[in-house]
Every structure is written in structure tokens, then in C-alpha cells.
Amino acid sequence: MRRGTGHLMNTSVTVWRVVLADDGGGGQTEAWAPQGEQPARLSQPTARQREVGDQENAHLTHVVYLRPGVDVRRGDQLRQPGLRLEVVAVFEPSVRGTYLRADCTSRQAEGE
């Protein structure tokens, strides 16, 4: 029996995504909306991961591990109080259904 990764999730993040809303004048505006809270594990990337990220102009600051099947996409934000992480890329490991990995950059909120 394969053991899940749920026991490794030691914090939680709220997934935020840009959604379109009618502006009342026939157009649309973009707004950030919460998509739900998810158990997570935040890690710092290794030196090698940072090097690869820098080569792709991603500048990784965190690697976030989530449960498999969580709806997290490139461009989403993962938020905790005082921390906003912009999702640069999302990966599944070679063994599907084990976990989901989101490579992120730190984004400072306005006014901070």
C-alpha cells in the first residue's frame, strides 16, 4: 500500500485566481478571487533549482507541495498572511497521484 503525502502538509495556503467580472457597461474587469484553502508544505528551492529558474527568468523563491489533484495553475497566487507566492509552474512527479509541486516566486503585496 502506498502511503500518501498528507502527513507532510504542515501549513495551508489559499489559492487565488484572476476571474473576469462584468463591469456593468458591456465590458469586463479582472479581479483576484479566492478559490479555496489547501493543505501545503512550503520549501525553499535548492541551489540547482534556483539556477535553472534563473536561466528561465523565473527567479524561484519557494517550492510548494500540495495534495494531488488540487486545481492550481500557472499565474495563480498562493497566499498566507504576509506572503504572496505567484505560481510560475506546476508539476506532477513521475509517480502520478503522489503530490503536486508548484514552483513560485515571492510577490510583495501593495503597501508592504
Rank of each mutant, 00 (worst) to 15 (best):
Y65C: 06
G82I: 11
G82V: 12
L85H: 03
Q28L: 11
R2P: 03
A102F: 02
C104W: 06
E30L: 15
L85R: 08
F91Q: 06
A102M: 04
E112P: 02
A31T: 15
Q55A: 01
D103C: 02
D76C: 07
R84I: 09
C104K: 04
T14I: 15
G36V: 01
S94G: 04
P93L: 14
Y65L: 09
R48M: 00
H7E: 09
V19F: 08
L42E: 10
R3I: 05
W16P: 03
E51C: 02
Y65P: 00
Q108R: 05
R41V: 10
R2T: 07
Y65G: 04
G27H: 12
V52R: 01
L66C: 05
G25W: 15
V87S: 02
G97P: 00
V13R: 05
G36H: 05
P68A: 15
T29I: 15
V13F: 11
V87H: 02
H7A: 14
Q55M: 00
S12I: 00
E112F: 01
Q28T: 15
Q44A: 14
T46A: 06
Q55S: 01
G4D: 03
V70D: 08
V88W: 06
G69A: 08
A58H: 03
L83W: 07
R107N: 14
S43I: 08
M9V: 05
G53L: 04
E112H: 01
E92K: 02
E56S: 02
C104T: 14
F91Y: 13
V63K: 09
R107P: 05
E30W: 14
V88K: 09
E30N: 13
A33P: 10
G4H: 06
R41Y: 05
V18P: 04
Q108G: 07
Q49S: 02
N10L: 10
V63H: 04
